[in-house]
Design a protein around this nucleic acid. Structure first.
Length: 387
DNA sequence: AATGATATCAACCGCGACCTT
DNA sequence: AAAGGTCGCGGTTGATATCAT
């Protein structure tokens, strides 16, 4: 409902913008702010529809846009965020603050997608096309279930992106009111979006021990029984993997990835919260408000409490690809494609990947994959551009 | 140099979500 | 609650640039 009339229906100009038009639009917005896009063209003396003006501004004229070649870090960010978020370019763009969603989308379609395809990796699923690395059906299903975690995170990122947008908008309007001429690109007066502090803890939580046959990973704060928790556990024939999304005091989903290696060498990484999930995993003592479902993963449990509401999980629109988390090595592999560039500076993400093989490194690879993504989103608050 | 193929990217289009009346 | 208005998103197109023959 309520679709605005198309430009050609009201005889407005279309196609490439002239420098004069750019100047008019720029001058008007610098002086008045964009206000209502619909009314802007008439006020600015442009024979364009508001939509066209908005697009020109957001994708080209905005002063806080970084143009030119994408850096290695940016490429890496795009690939990893795409693995997590799918084609949600605006959400991805939130973490590359000076890039527009359109630019990222174009770059993906013209460069990165092709590069992935060329390497035999499905750019949609981020899985190898022949599925060679997912040797068993169980692992595929494993990946599918891990995707629930990605969905949660995806939904959270989406909400975060929305907040950032709104904050920026408010900030920008405020600055325009104060001094239209003093607009400083890329600056905001608002607090950065909540970062994934817990995920940082999560990153630091990996360690090894010789205890038991599984590996666990946690935020290190999961022991807070008071906090709302979302816990997802599952297991299959292989030693169990457990993912727990734990809500912190500020309703920040804290993701615990309690992974296990097929190899006893990997051992358990534990912390004070371990007893919580262990109890659940080994018994039927599920917390209240939990949802259990089974698949070929024999046990999956999600507990939803506190403000971690289903409404916040707009998973229906999430394009999270089941297999992506299982293919940690591919991003690094891709970025290590020496035919394109020397990527030595990206060692941060690839140093531990150890290729994409299975075996004992399999879950270690997953860990690294998520570590890199969470590090990425953690380090990219909107007003502190990472690039 | 001419021509065709391919790559790039700005811009458009249609849809859905959100807001206002 | 329903209808209309506006905005933003993602997919796609088409003009231009670049490369290959």
């Amino acid at each position: 409902m309520g679709r605005s009339p198309c430009c050609d229906k009201i005889g407005l100009k279309k196609g490439p913008w002239t420098p004069e038009e750019d100047q008019k639009l720029l001058a008007y917005i610098e002086e008045h702010g964009h206000g209502s896009w619909r009314n802007l063209p008439a006020k600015a003396g442009l024979q364009r529809c508001g939509k066209s003006c908005r697009l020109r501004w957001t994708n080209y004229l905005r002063p806080d846009i970084k143009r030119g070649k994408f850096s290695l870090q940016e490429e890496q960010a795009i690939i990893q965020l795409h693995a997590l978020l799918g084609n949600r370019w605006s959400a991805i763009a939130t973490h590359l603050p000076k890039r527009t969603d359109n630019e990222i989308k174009n770059y993906w379609n013209t460069h990165l997608k092709k590069r992935l395809t060329k390497m035999g990796i499905d750019p949609v699923t981020h899985k190898p096309r022949n599925d060679a690395l997912l040797s068993s059906e169980g692992q595929s299903k494993n990946a599918a279930n891990i995707s629930h975690m990605a969905q949660w995170e995806s939904a959270r990122l989406e909400a975060e992106a929305r907040l950032v947008r709104e904050s920026k908008l408010r900030s920008h309007s405020f600055q325009q009111q104060l001094s239209p001429q003093s607009y400083i690109p890329g600056t905001t007066s608002v607090h950065p979006p909540r970062s994934f502090d817990a995920l940082k803890a999560w990153n630091g939580g990996w360690s090894k021990s010789s205890e038991g046959n599984g590996g666990t990973l946690s935020t290190g704060i999961g022991g807070d029984l008071e906090s709302p928790t979302s816990t997802l556990t599952f297991s299959e024939n292989a030693p169990p993997i457990m993912i727990s999304a734990n809500m912190g005091e500020n309703s920040v989903p804290l993701i615990e990835f309690v992974g296990t290696s097929g190899s006893s060498e990997t051992g358990i990484i534990k912390d004070e919260s371990e007893h919580d999930w262990k109890g659940m995993a080994n018994s039927n003592h599920l917390p209240e408000n939990s949802v259990s479902f089974s698949s070929d993963f024999q046990d999956m449990t999600i507990s939803m409490e506190g403000t971690w509401s289903p409404e916040s999980l707009r998973t229906n629109s999430s394009h999270v690809h089941a297999g992506n988390v299982m293919e940690e090595g591919f991003t690094s592999l891709l970025l290590s494609d020496s035919t394109e560039q020397n990527l030595s500076e990206s060692g941060k993400h690839s140093e531990n990947s150890g290729g994409s093989g299975g075996g004992s490194g399999y879950y270690e690879d997953n860990k690294n994959y998520w570590n890199s993504i969470f590090n990425l989103v953690n380090s990219s608050p909107a007003n502190s551009p990472m690039f």
